[in-house]
């Protein structure tokens, strides 16, 4: 269970996040949608404190962190309980796919090297890259890199997986393989918070949809409810584009 209360962040004079309250139950797949600049990425990055909010509390499992009074140990603890997949993959360039996945296991979780290797191999096999374990990021395609990044995140067995526009940097063909991997991850019962512009994908995998506008949650509901019966004006506008694209160009 993840509880976020009163999360606020501003870059003066703009308020990026305005008192966000959010509770995510275990196993939920929450998609965050909204136009760019709505604060979606900031929300995600605030949860693992890559971005330091001005105030608020974040509770993941038993760990509760008050932003204002946070300690270094609490910050690390929060980060250990989450794992993030970035838009630009952010793999370690000087490490192979296998070493990328092993890194957190060895350094953060202090798992013996041989065991870490086994876990990493398993995760890489799950994302379909067992034949690429000794390749370095620059020798992999964007889609493969992102799948390694997903394996790296999954290996840490986080209580919350954060996806920050995982397919925005990929062309549609490569995005497909990444989306399939994310879908598989979702089906395994992981708790996920996902920022994505791929509306049809969101509609396929999310159990719950949040609409963020100007730093506030303007709509929060079950997937089908939001897609077929949006309440707020902002959501209707956002979905208008999605439905327009879905309409056939010609009808007989």
């Amino acid at each position: 269970m993840i509880e976020i209360r009163g999360l606020t962040k501003s870059f003066h004079p703009h308020t990026i996040l305005n008192h966000i309250d959010l509770t995510i139950r275990t196993g939920e797949i929450v998609a965050v949608i909204g136009s760019s600049g709505a604060g979606k990425s900031t929300l995600l990055r605030s949860i693992n404190l890559l971005e330091i909010p001005d105030k608020g509390t974040i509770k993941i499992g038993e760990v509760k962190v008050d932003i204002v009074k946070r300690t270094k140990a609490e910050t690390l603890e929060l980060r250990k309980r989450t794992a993030m997949v970035f838009q630009q993959f952010n793999l370690f360039r000087q490490k192979t796919a296998l070493e990328n996945v092993m890194e957190g296991l060895i350094i953060v979780k202090k798992i013996p090297k041989e065991d870490a290797r086994k876990i990493a191999m398993l995760q890489l096999e799950k994302v379909g890259l067992i034949h690429r374990i000794h390749h370095y990021p620059k020798q992999l395609s964007g889609g493969q890199q992102q799948r390694v990044a997903i394996a790296r995140a999954l290996a840490m067995q986080p209580q919350l997986l954060l996806f920050d526009e995982p397919t925005s940097a990929l062309d549609p063909e490569l995005a497909g393989e990444v989306l399939d991997t994310i879908k598989k991850t979702a089906e395994e019962g992981n708790t996920m918070l996902l920022v994505s512009h791929e509306m049809s994908f969101v509609r396929k995998i999310a159990t719950r949809v949040l609409v963020l506008d100007q730093g506030a949650i303007v709509e929060d509901g079950a997937r089908e409810e939001v897609f077929s019966n949006p309440k707020s004006e902002r959501t209707k506008q956002l979905l208008a584009n999605y439905y327009r694209d879905r309409d056939p160009e010609f009808a007989i």
Partner: peptide
Amino acid sequence: KGQTEAAQSLGMT
């Protein structure tokens, strides 16, 4: 910075 962020997000000091 991305690599640093990725490492931090794993919980590294």
